[in-house]
């Protein structure tokens, strides 16, 4: 009897995220009379979470080291503006070159800002909350300064596919938006990095016991710095993709994204204390939040109430997660 119980418990604990997600999907479908389940709608949900989801995978690494990165939203704006300016300035060049330069600019600006924040955190032992709060403000300000507060237009038409296009459209139809594919590919890569590489192991070690990691010869500072470089890189990618979506570099994008991204990671079961978390959990967390937003829209819940509901659901998911985890034998 106790054996059966412990097997059930183990299954519930291991599978708690899919269980929560499944319950939500069923509820959504019922409450929206099935409108939720229409294929265009599901594609839409995935597209809406693709930008923040992408960044959330990087944030998972940061949070597992015990850190936090508040600068992600601003960094999307900064990298997006920088990339747009670069592409705009090359008006005479070949469009493919312009797109490539746009990507390169966004990724370089993203990684170097991430590296700066990471270096401050690792070298001077400044709390990540403070260091990235600072880079958040600097990056947001810099985005406005670079473009005088005006969105940057005149981007090459070839860019548009990356934000609004579909992969294999002749075969799949409009089922796989390009940003969604990029997000899913990043998920696959980062899942492997997290679980199967020396870097991933170091991230977990630093987060679960920094002293022990240090006294085992793990390069703690380099590892801490690297996770902020990773979020910076993903913000750069999101920044240029967002340019493609809007066909403009806008310094106002990404407001509050840091909180949505952190919410996805935490709803996905990653501990803010570090040391414990999964990339798959974050994917599910991002989907949960996306599904919620979407079904509330479909149900025509008033915008203000949506926030209330979203807050409560995040709380409920966390409580359920905590309750299930408590059943786990230590």
């Amino acid at each position: 009897m106790t054996r059966v119980r412990s097997v059930v418990v183990a299954w519930l604990v291991a599978g708690r995220m899919p269980v929560i997600l499944g319950a939500l999907l069923i509820t959504s479908s019922v409450l929206t009379d099935g409108r939720f389940l229409r294929i265009e709608n599901l594609v839409n949900v995935m597209r809406q979470i693709s930008f923040e989801g992408l960044i959330a995978f990087g944030m998972t690494f940061v949070i597992v080291t015990g850190g936090i990165d508040l600068s992600v939203g601003s960094l999307v704006a900064l990298t997006g503006v920088a990339a747009a300016l670069a592409m705009q300035s090359l008006a005479e060049a070949d469009p493919a070159v312009r797109v490539a330069v746009g990507f390169a600019t966004a990724l370089i600006v993203g990684t170097s800002t991430g590296a700066a924040a990471g270096a401050i955190i690792a070298r001077f032992a400044i709390p990540p909350f403070i260091a990235t709060l600072a880079t958040m403000l600097v990056a947001r300000g810099a985005a406005f300064i670079l473009c005088d507060g005006q969105p940057v237009h005149e981007l090459p038409g070839e860019l548009m596919w990356w934000g609004r296009g579909f992969v294999l459209e002749p075969v799949l139809g409009q089922r796989l938006p390009a940003p969604v594919l990029i997000m899913l590919a990043s998920y696959a890569v980062l899942l492997v990095v997290f679980r199967r590489t020396v870097f991933g192991r170091r991230v977990v070690a630093v987060g679960s016991n920094e002293q022990a990691a240090y006294l085992s010869g793990i390069p703690v500072r380099a590892t801490k710095m690297a996770v902020y470089v990773l979020t910076g890189l993903l913000c750069g990618l999101a920044g240029v993709l967002h340019d493609a979506k809007l066909m403009a570099g806008d310094p106002k994008v990404g407001e509050m994204w840091e909180l949505n991204v952190i919410a996805a990671v935490v709803v996905g079961g990653t501990s803010l204390f570090g040391g414990r978390g999964t990339v798959t959990g974050t994917l599910i967390g991002a989907i949960i939040i996306g599904v919620l937003n979407n079904s509330l829209n479909l149900m025509e819940v008033e915008h203000f109430w949506q926030k209330v509901v979203l807050g409560l659901v995040i709380l409920a998911a966390s409580l359920l997660d905590a309750a299930l985890r408590r059943l786990e034998p230590q």
């Binding site: 977990v204 070690a205 679960s208 016991n209 002293q211 022990a212 006294l215 040391g275 414990r276």
Partner: peptide, 14 residues
């Protein structure tokens, strides 16, 4: 080998 294996040595949950 550190003197305090829990604080300085092990990743207890791993």
């Amino acid at each position: 080998l550190p003197e305090d294996r829990k604080q300085q040595g092990l990743l207890l949950g791993r």
